[in-house]
Simulated scan of single mutants.
Amino acid sequence: MPRVPRRPVPPLDRSGLERLALRYVERFATTRGRLTDYLLRKIRERGWKDDVAADPAVIAERFAELGYIDDQAYGEAKASAMARRGLGARRVTGALHQAGIRGEDAEAIAPRIEERAIDAAITFARRRRIGPFAEQVADRPLREKQIGAMLRAGHAPALARRIATMNPGDDLTDLD
């Protein structure tokens, strides 16, 4: 059976761009930066037909003012979820930066990320059976691999080394 050619998608105008933006924030938790990037991509893909130049940043800013987007709440939720997975502060702040959370919002979230750093490291060590959660004392090469894994997960070098050098069953209360 011959393939029916697809009808070309018409270029966007201001109202079409706003409909796309509204549909996006309706479906996904997002940030102003991500919404702007999404809208720019759609303009590149479909083209623009209005006389006035497209400005997705204005739409994202208006949606934030209306409460459809809250960068700080998104960042807090994302940081909390990453900490529950055992990821460290460096990895969390990198993910938030990539999501477009900067400035005041990032500064407001930073103290809470630091507060969860030890708990996240312990969670990571428990999941990977590192240090006090290991079944037996790790030899030096294995311990270095474990420290490397913790560093890649975003944990501070000193904290990673302290946890990895602990013996199985050691008390974790001295980490605070």
Rank of each mutant, 00 (worst) to 15 (best):
T93Q: 14
A73Y: 00
A108K: 15
A89L: 03
P111S: 05
L87W: 09
R112P: 00
R102W: 11
A106P: 10
I69Y: 04
P56I: 12
A73C: 00
G100A: 06
E65C: 00
G103C: 08
I69E: 05
I122R: 15
D70L: 02
A108G: 09
G94M: 08
F124K: 06
I118P: 00
E104V: 08
R127H: 13
P56L: 08
A121G: 04
G131D: 06
I109Y: 07
A106C: 06
E107D: 14
I69S: 05
A110V: 06
A121I: 02
A120Q: 08
R84C: 04
I122A: 09
R129S: 14
D105K: 11
A106L: 15
F124H: 12
G100E: 02
A79L: 03
R129A: 15
L66H: 09
A106T: 07
A77L: 11
A134P: 12
E61M: 05
E114S: 12
A83T: 12
G86F: 12
R62H: 10
F133S: 08
I118L: 13
G88C: 06
A110M: 10
Y68H: 14
H97G: 15
Y68N: 05
I113A: 01
G67D: 03
P132L: 00
A64N: 05
R127V: 13
I59S: 02
G94I: 01
A125L: 04
E65Q: 10
G86I: 12
R129Y: 13
A125F: 06
M82E: 06
R128L: 08
R91Q: 14
E114G: 08
E114F: 11
I101Y: 02
A89W: 10
A108H: 10
E107G: 12
E76V: 04
F63A: 04
G100W: 05
I59K: 01
F133L: 07
G131V: 11
I69A: 09
G86V: 12
E65P: 00
T123H: 03
I109D: 02
V58T: 10
F63L: 15
A117Q: 10
R126D: 09
A73N: 00
A81D: 05
R91I: 04
R112V: 01
I109E: 02
A121D: 00
H97C: 09
L87D: 01
I118M: 10
R126S: 15
L66M: 13
A120D: 07
A134V: 14
E114M: 13
A99S: 10
G88I: 05
G94N: 10
I69V: 09
A77T: 14
R91M: 11
R116H: 02
R62D: 08
A57P: 00
E115L: 15
A81K: 08
A57L: 04
V92Q: 14
F133I: 07
I130R: 05
R62I: 11
A106E: 13
A99N: 02
A73P: 00
R102Y: 08
A73Q: 03
F63Y: 11
A110T: 13
E104K: 12
D71R: 11
I109W: 04
A81I: 03
L96I: 02
I130G: 02
I69M: 07
G67N: 05
